[in-house]
Design a protein around this nucleic acid. Sequence first.
DNA 1: AAAGTCTGCAACCGCCAGTTC
DNA 2: AGAACTGGCGGTTGCAGACTT
Length: 330
Amino acid sequence: MVRPPCCDKEGVKKGPWTPEEDLVLVSYIQEHGPGNWRAVPARTGLMRCSKSCRLRWTNYLRPGIKRGNFTEQEEKLIVHLQALLGNRWAAIASYLPERTDNDIKNYWNTHLKRKLQSGGDGAAKPPAHRPPSSSKGQWERRLQTDINLARRALREALTPLDDLKPQLQRDAAADAPAAGAGTGGGDSPASSSSGASQSSPLAPAAFAAAAAGPYVLTAENISRMLDGWAGRKVRGGGTPGTPGGAESASTGSSDASEVSYGGAAVASAAPAPACGGPVFEYEAKPGVPTSHQQMPLSAIESWLFDDDSHLHHAVQSASLLDAAPMDYPF
DNA sequence: AAAGTCTGCAACCGCCAGTTC
DNA sequence: AGAACTGGCGGTTGCAGACTT
C-alpha cells in the first residue's frame, strides 16, 4: 500500500524553528504532555508537521538534554556501544540519558568515526564486521534484550536510594494530584494523564511537580523566555536561530533554556537541583533512568569495559552473521 | 581582508514496527 | 485478519560559523 504523507505537505513550514514556535510547542506540551503528536499542529496552530514537532521536542526542547562537549567517558561509552550495537543510535542514547540519539549520531559521524579511522585514541575500534544495518535480526534483538535486562538489574542493584526519589514523588502526586494541578494554572489539565501517560507513568508526578515547582507558564515567564532567546546568538540573517546552539549551550550556564524551564538547568550537565526538580520530569526517555535515577556511568563502564566477553561475543556473533547469514535459533 | 574549504548541527526524509479500528 | 494510522529510528542534507589559504 502507499503510505500517505505524515502531514499535508502544502502549508507546512520547514526549516529552523523560531523561538515563538518553540514557545508554543513547549507551552502545549507543558499543558498536555508529549504524545499525540498528530494533534499538536492542529491544536497549537503551528504550521509544522507532527513529526517535526516531535523531533523538535525530543531532540531539542525536551528538558534534561545536555548539549555539546562530550566527555571522554561518554565518548568511550559511545565507541563501545557502537561497536556492540552498531548504528542503533536510539539504543546507544538510552545509555546516555542526557544525550539525544541525534546528538550521538552527529557526534559519531563528525568526531568519533574520523577519530577511529585515523587511528583513534586507543579506544576500542569498531569491529571490522559490524552488524549489518539491514539485519534487524533476532540475534540483535536478543542482544538488546540482554543488555536491557542487565542494565535494569545493574541499576536496581546500584541505585536503590536514587530510585526512591521518583517513586516518592509519584506517591506524593498520587496522594494529591488534583490539588497540585489546580494551583498551577486554574484550568490547566495538568492532572489529566491523557497525553502524558502515554509517554511515561511519571506524568502525574511531573505535573504535580510542575504546578508546585518553579516554572509556571505565565506571561512573565513567557516574556523571560523570549528575552532569553532574543538575547542569544542569532544564526543566519534574521533567522532567530535555535536556542542553545551546541557549544554555547553547554558552556554558558546562563543559557536561555535554563531560564525558560525555571532553573531546572535543563541544558546543564548538572543534575537537577533538589529543590523543585525538573518541571518536565515525565519527559525522561521511556525505559531510561531519569536524571534522578540515572545509573552511574562508571558502573556501566565497568560492566562494558571490564568484561570484554560482552564485546567479543557481540563481535563474534556479528562476524558469524556476516560470514554466513542464518536464522539464529535464539 | 577576501575567498574558499571544512566542520558541526538542526532538521528533513523515508522506512519500519507497533497499535488501533 | 488486514488495512490504516502513529510514533520511532537511522540516514542524509542544507546551512551557517569557523578555519585556512
